[in-house]
Write a protein that binds this DNA or RNA. Structure first.
Lengths: 342, 342
DNA sequence: ACTCCGTATGAAACCGGTTCCATAAGCCGG
DNA sequence: CCGGCTTATGGAACCGGTTTCATACGGAGT
């Protein structure tokens, strides 16, 4: 190849103009004569010149990049959000810089630090639950960010998501309405996770509101993978005095229960009603199809991006956005009467 | 906040040294006295200073960033690869810049252009099947890249993946070995996709080798989503003279068949044997569990990253790496005798 | 005491864009 | 015919790191 990269000055020389003019053409400013613009564009096209974004970033102090750190992409829930975000951002001239934390807050911080060093214009973080040190770091460096996944109007930082407490409450209420009195609760780890916590509390509040007991041995804390979920489900099924229904705070956990019941020949919903939260793609494909709380994950992420893009553009955008959820009844829930009265 | 961002010169002033020295400390060079190093690090720590990666990138002409463009993250197959790549790269000081093309070559090119403009050190692209214009663009800009998903030793560009022809062949052979004579073929779109093409050809070659016919109406070309797969499966089941087995070039397609059969009461494998290629996480969870060709997707991506990291570091790495696959027999395949001889 | 060398540090140019400011040309009204 | 305004363009500083080259210093060798 030709010895060195070609830059704006080369283009300028070949087009017989000043670098400043080339820059103006590149940025579509209107203070350039039509004639000059065409000449410059011609040169750019024939040389296949692509301006150096790092140089531009250094100069204008913005990278047109949004960073995000999620626990893993290896989970339909996050993958779906990432996908939606990526698409929305690309359509608006931004690129997504992706980092994963593997559910480790320590690593999350390191990743955030890295992203900030790379001068992302803003960050998308899951949940509003972050260490003060991290928050202070972000504030100190003037990096805007938005929390996705939970609607937290009381938080001083922007957030987009659903009301997790209400979702947990709604899921549990559905079971109560069906007539269940013995309801178990399988929740994701709540440490450092306000969404899981909200859902669990919602379900508990529903139970308490209905005057129903929740014995210690009917509540389980579940790890992140599908295998963890199956493991826990197995433990649940081994319970001598089993509940007639369980609310799972994520669909993945519910999958675990459904699959494990299938394996051990326990029929759903006759012997056990199961409800999840999330409504992943698989939820309606699995056998029996999962009753769940549908969360518009893609919309949540899209709105988070929308918020950032607009507020970076100087717009005045509402700090908190609540996305709606809805109960989607499929085949894994039924009245306990079906089984008991038989 | 303090009026302006703090830079290396501020750190230098506060530590009473020259900017060059701070730079040396940051980069861990050894030509700095222990005493000075400690003083500088002290200042950096107390000020929470994070060096500007864009400035560094401009200066050293490398961003420690690897770009990739995949059709979508919204597919367990790609999500899994992305996830592995991200993790591996992070562990080696790189960050993944993610772009998606939505199965559109036009958009893919645009994304590549964008990534190149952002000065990624290298690219990971799916497959070796790219337009000459794109290849020329990459070459002209001196951007190294590696193809993932197919082992293509004859290609002038590096590749990491499995031998897709062999995978298709193996899958089909499994059905033939079981005694099937009427075998259908559900393949992903082959346009611009050498992997799908290889698998389809492999299956066809196996058929031809066994002297088995493949009537036009037993081969289907399937769209990308699970819903497309179900749609096609529905069409297959409507065939009056249906095959006794089908090879699907991806697990997602196989899922479609399995789910659609369950819906219409057709029992697998008694009435129809199904084999997929890929072995996604769901393949072993679905009912009945899917027989498939297991591809070490994560390993493929990890090796692709490994290749790039090492060759960027100046190492001399083998240009093509073939990952192994293996047949994983589960519950969706059986001898046709079971059904026919009854 | 003097040269020679290795080590620690500083000064300044450079990476490739952007943008402020200056300048020049063209046009209008008085 | 000239001042003043608008528009097109060029010159040069600047963004925040890195790196080359020069310099200063201390110690070893003779």
């Amino acid at each position: 190849m030709n010895g060195k990269r070609l830059g704006i000055r080369d283009i300028a020389r070949l087009a017989g103009v000043a670098p400043a003019t080339v820059s103006r053409v590149l940025n579509g400013q209107k203070l350039v004569s039509e004639e000059t613009r065409r000449r410059v564009e011609e040169v750019i096209r024939t040389l296949d010149y692509v301006p150096d974004a790092t140089a531009r970033a250094l100069s204008v102090r913005q990278t047109k990049t949004i960073g995000t750190v999620v626990p893993t992409v290896d989970n339909a829930f996050y993958a779906s959000g990432i996908s939606a975000a990526q698409k929305y951002l690309a359509a608006n001239g931004y690129t997504l810089l992706l980092a994963t934390s593997d559910y480790d807050p320590e690593l999350e911080f390191e990743q955030v630090r890295n992203l900030v060093g790379r001068k992302v214009d803003a960050l998308i973080l899951r949940g509003a639950d972050h260490s003060p040190v991290l928050l202070q770091f972000l504030a100190g460096h003037g990096v805007p960010w938005v929390a996705v996944g939970s609607y937290s109007p009381q938080s001083p930082f922007p957030s987009v998501g659903i009301d997790n407490h209400a979702a947990g409450f709604r899921a549990c209420t559905h079971l109560i309405d069906l007539g269940h009195r013995r309801i178990g609760l399988l929740g994701a780890r709540t440490g450092n996770n306000d969404r899981a916590r909200g859902r669990v509390r919602g379900a508990k509040d529903a139970l308490a509101g209905a005057g129903l007991p929740l014995p210690e041995h009917w509540v389980f804390e579940v790890g992140a993978g599908l295998d963890d979920a199956r493991q826990t489900a197995k433990a649940l099924l081994a319970e001598p005095a089993r509940p007639t229904a369980v609310v799972c705070t994520t669909d993945l956990i519910a999958f675990g229960v459904v699959l494990e019941c299938a394996r051990s020949g326990l029929s759903i919903p006759e012997s056990l009603s199961v409800i999840g939260i999330g409504d992943l793609e698989w939820s309606r494909h699995i056998q029996p199809a999962l009753t769940t709380i549908s969360i518009p994950t893609k919309e949540v992420w899209r709105r988070a991006c929308d918020f950032l893009v607009h507020s970076l553009a100087g717009g005045n955008v509402c700090q908190h956005f609540e996305c709606g959820f809805e109960l989607t009844v499929r085949e894994t829930t039924a009245s306990p009467a079906i089984a008991r009265s038989a």
